[in-house]
């Protein structure tokens, strides 16, 4: 039971980081990426390779993963600079599809469909350590950084770009730099989550980085409430405890739990958008005007 709860808590922390970082670009910068699982995956492969080839040091793996995911976030930042709205969603979808093919095909780096197996247990400066405390610390750091960035000048620049890009530019804000930085921060955070995930499960393959996961994280952010600090966390708790809760219902066959979970969150997304577009935590008056 302790092991089960500890596993659930670790998953919560990891997906919490993903949701919080995605919320940073979706909620504050208005960049609607459906490619977050790509950067989660990049971080996971990077962290796994560090642990396999060098040392399974959790901090080193996280830093390397953040560097890789943050660096490659330019793939997402470039279209974000050129287009917005529908066009950008299309570009991020394309990126997601191409990335899954790459993950499955680049066998030397990713192990192909079989994935990377036998990732050693994590250590910290040579001392064995659990992933849970590190993941919780990382989540706290991400939330703190989000709160600070969102409240400061940078956050206000981002919201200004979200609400009226040309107005922000006219006021002398460097739109390109702000967007690139925001995307870089969010993707680096997703990379850290990926490295933690790889060390936690000691096995990674492409199935954890598909569009389903991008959508799951997106659903967490939306159901909780975009542009709020706690909304994405609440969304994460709800969506991750859903399968656990459904497993206890006797009339649902175990093979259909996944499908029913997806149906429930799909329904929740649609109904929320019709009746409460700002999400569970969001401020109603603000959520409607953003575009």
């Amino acid at each position: 039971m302790i092991a089960y709860l500890s596993n659930l808590a670790t998953q919560l922390a990891i997906f919490g980081i993903l949701a919080a970082t995605l919320n940073f670009i979706v909620g504050y910068a208005g960049i609607f990426s459906i490619a977050h699982a790509v950067f989660f995956g990049l971080g996971a492969y990077a962290g796994a390779q560090i642990a396999l080839l060098l040392v399974p040091d959790v901090v080193l793996a996280c830093l390397f993963a953040a560097a890789i995911a943050g660096g490659l976030s330019l793939c997402l930042a470039l279209p974000a600079l050129r287009v917005r709205g529908e066009y950008f969603v299309a570009a991020s979808l394309g990126l997601q599809m191409v990335a899954v093919t790459l993950f499955a095909e680049l066998k030397p780096l990713t192990g192909g469909i079989g994935g990377l197996v036998g990732i050693p247990l994590p250590t910290l400066f040579g001392v064995p350590v659990g992933v849970l405390p590190v993941a919780l610390a990382a989540l706290a750091l991400v939330l703190l950084a989000t709160a600070l960035l969102a409240r400061g000048a940078f956050g206000r620049t981002l919201t200004a770009i979200r609400d009226a890009e040309s107005a922000a530019e006219a006021l002398g804000k460097n739109v390109a730099a702000a967007k690139t930085l925001a995307v870089g921060f969010a993707c680096a955070g997703a990379g850290v989550a990926g490295a933690l995930y790889a060390l936690h499960t000691s096995f990674v393959n492409v199935e954890s980085f598909t569009m389903e996961y991008s959508v799951l994280v997106m659903a967490m952010v939306i159901i909780g409430g975009t542009g709020t600090l706690w909304g994405p966390l609440i969304g994460t708790v709800i969506l991750l405890s859903l399968p656990a809760g459904l497993a206890f219902l006797p009339f649902i066959p175990p093979s259909e739990v996944g499908a029913i979970q997806q149906i429930l969150y799909g329904l929740a997304m649609t109904l929320l958008m019709i009746f409460r577009p700002a999400g569970l935590v969001g401020d109603l008056s603000r959520g409607r005007a953003t575009a």
Binding site: G85, V215, Y265, A268, M269, M273, A291
Partner: peptide
């Protein structure tokens, strides 16, 4: 006055269901 994103998410939800 739903924004682009509201419309998109709602449709996406239907697709998943």
């Amino acid at each position: 006055e739903g924004s682009f994103f509201t419309v998109f998410v709602a449709a996406f939800g239907v697709g998943i269901v």
